[in-house]
Amino acid sequence: MNYRRVKTEGGTYFFTVNLADRRQATLVDHIDLLRSVISLVKDRHPFALESIVIMPEHLHTIWTLPEGDKDYPTRWALIKAGFSRNIAKVEMIGASRAAKGERGIWQRRYWEHLIRNDEDFTRHVDYIHFNPVKHGYVSNPIDWPYSSIHRFVASGIVPANWGALSLEISGDFGE
């Protein structure tokens, strides 16, 4: 099926990508592999990784594609396939996936949103960095090790205690 997706050359996009089995912790259990695959794909198909948080069973990220490039689907296909090929086959694979030779690690689809302006960008970065608190893993975003918030704190964009107090972030983020 061909889903309608916004594809803007050089666009900045927010993504939510989920595991098929949301009860697993596969992404953090294999964090070095995931980071390596993302880096490899980024080297071969460049994009700016603006912000990211990797949760046990999903991730959120913001990418900016190069001018003239709108092909984020290929990048996601390569990341998902590269990750899946390098972990043991222990997941349940349904008949539909087996017939297509697919693994059962990732949900087939993902959520994408074209960032529209600076305010939209900031709201999505905040959502990304606050996600571990939202899900109850930590009380302060800086305490989650798999987040770009560490880069934001180190560069002085936000203080180390950002988000430790109550924070309201509204919107539809694909979770």
Rank of each mutant, 00 (worst) to 15 (best):
R4V: 13
V6R: 13
K7E: 13
G10V: 01
F14Q: 01
T16F: 05
A20D: 09
A20M: 11
D21Y: 15
R22F: 08
R23P: 03
Q24E: 07
T26Q: 07
L27A: 06
L27E: 15
D29M: 02
I31A: 09
L33I: 00
S36P: 03
I38Y: 15
R44G: 14
F47P: 00
A48L: 07
E50I: 12
I52A: 05
I52K: 01
V53F: 15
M55F: 13
M55A: 04
M55W: 15
P56Y: 15
P56S: 06
H60N: 13
T61I: 02
P66Y: 09
P66H: 08
E67G: 03
G68E: 05
D71I: 00
Y72M: 00
P73M: 07
T74F: 10
R75K: 09
R75C: 02
A77Q: 09
L78H: 11
K80D: 14
A81T: 06
A81Q: 10
G82D: 05
F83R: 00
R85H: 08
N86I: 00
I87R: 06
A88K: 10
G94T: 06
A98Q: 15
A99C: 09
A99L: 10
G101A: 03
G101R: 04
I105M: 04
Q107D: 08
R109F: 05
L114T: 03
R116A: 08
E119R: 01
T122V: 05
R123E: 13
R123F: 12
H124W: 03
Y127E: 01
Y127S: 02
H129D: 10
N131W: 10
H135W: 15
Y137F: 12
V138F: 15
N140S: 03
N140C: 11
P141A: 00
P145S: 07
S148Q: 06
S148H: 03
I149E: 08
H150E: 06
R151D: 09
A154T: 13
S155R: 03
N161C: 07
W162A: 01
A164I: 00
I169D: 15
G171N: 04
D172Y: 14
F173H: 01
G174I: 07
G174W: 14
